[in-house]
Design a protein around this nucleic acid. Structure first.
Lengths: 206, 206
DNA sequence: CCATAGTGATACTCAGATGTATCAGTTATA
DNA sequence: TATAACTGATACATCTGAGTATCACTATGG
């Protein structure tokens, strides 16, 4: 399936465009998952047509975002040496990195089934080791992983002025789109295709 | 602002329609938050025009869903006697009800800022009482509330065959839209207005 | 039973988004 | 420098959904 077609070398400057698009997409979509490709292109400082050239479809772009997140996760798992370091040490290292990931990949992080089985498995393995070490008691490692990620998520959703946390890291809490914190406003959940408001939120009040 | 307009009595008939629409909307939107009003109307067994007659706009419909959720929450808080019962007892009662709410109001539950300050305050008060009773140590009741809801949410997101839970309640886990569990498929996140796939998810893998 | 509220069917308008095509100009790189 | 890749601008075609209006029909409830 590689076909012996023409190599069609990719210019360095095109790769930069791709990177800028991905970056802009993450930023814009984190703020409004229903944002149009045009807004993403604007944020990237490129024309909409260029986005279409780099990504055959909107879906392809979103897939790329998910793939990027998984790469970062694998990188984080490697850096934290989750397979070899003492589990509690690994957990702390991982936490710092994942926390950062949740800030920088707010959109991708909210994608359904964003994480590949490989990433999930490696996370689960850490919880297996935590259990073996007696650090946790939960029988099911997947459950441990879910709770872990859920709690991290809640922390990262906390308002900046929360008395509970006094984070050292810079917290650029843009609180989604500022115009849409109110119930009626935010309720304009992903209005499929109209002039009416848009903007949703992945993990809200509940 | 009530204007002395014509009373325009509302027929019982119409109220039933409204209820059916809300019910259908919750079901359809839980499966696909970007679903069109047409699909909702279909699910309700009504014409799309009727939906527009009952709710002036899509936004109005979503607002109604949020309002309904808040009503249910207030009702739950009342039934659990969170203000008077021993806090741990209240917590358990509340948990059962909220757990049910998360199943029956999967969409509204995912709306950003769905819960009114009133509901949040009353929930927080319970955590204040829990702390006073020594049941928990968290300083910030809002944080307790968030963790509580987040964990409940994770439980309700667990796959039906999880070894961790052996729930007594019937668990109709439709796993969102069955066609869209895979990454590429689910990545078709709220494509604003095209023939390409749709369907997102409010609280996914992370 | 009858005035009236409610409904479905149909046909619109309007806006926004995706995706394609073309072409002229610009930039990287061998 | 010259080829090929990349880009922006522009113009389209197409689709989908929201929202409105009209009219004939049905069901409610006093």
């Amino acid at each position: 399936m590689d076909g012996g077609g023409v190599p069609r070398r990719i210019r360095a400057d095109a790769e930069r465009s791709t990177a800028r698009i991905l970056e802009a997409a993450e930023a814009v979509l984190a703020d409004d998952p229903a944002a149009s490709l045009e807004r993403i292109a604007d944020a990237a400082g490129l024309a909409r047509v260029t986005v279409h050239r780099r990504f055959s479809s909107r879906t392809a772009l979103l897939d790329a975002l998910a793939a990027q997140l998984n790469e970062r996760y694998l990188q984080a798992l490697g850096e934290a040496r989750v397979d070899t370091a003492p589990p509690l040490v690994a957990l702390q290292r991982l936490t710092e990195i994942v926390f950062e990931l949740k800030l920088t990949h707010r959109f991708a992080v909210g994608l359904f089934a964003a994480l590949t089985p490989e990433v999930l498995d490696r996370l689960d393995q850490l919880f297996v080791r935590l259990r073996e070490a007696g650090a946790i008691t939960a029988a099911d490692p997947a459950w441990g992983r879910r709770v872990y990620l859920a709690l991290l998520h809640e922390v990262h959703e906390l308002p900046a002025d929360s008395p509970t946390l006094a984070p050292s890291a810079p917290r650029t809490r843009s609180r989604r789109r500022s115009t849409c914190s109110c119930a009626p406003c935010s309720a304009r959940w992903a209005a499929p295709a109209t002039r009416s408001g848009r903007s949703p939120a992945s993990v809200p009040n509940r």
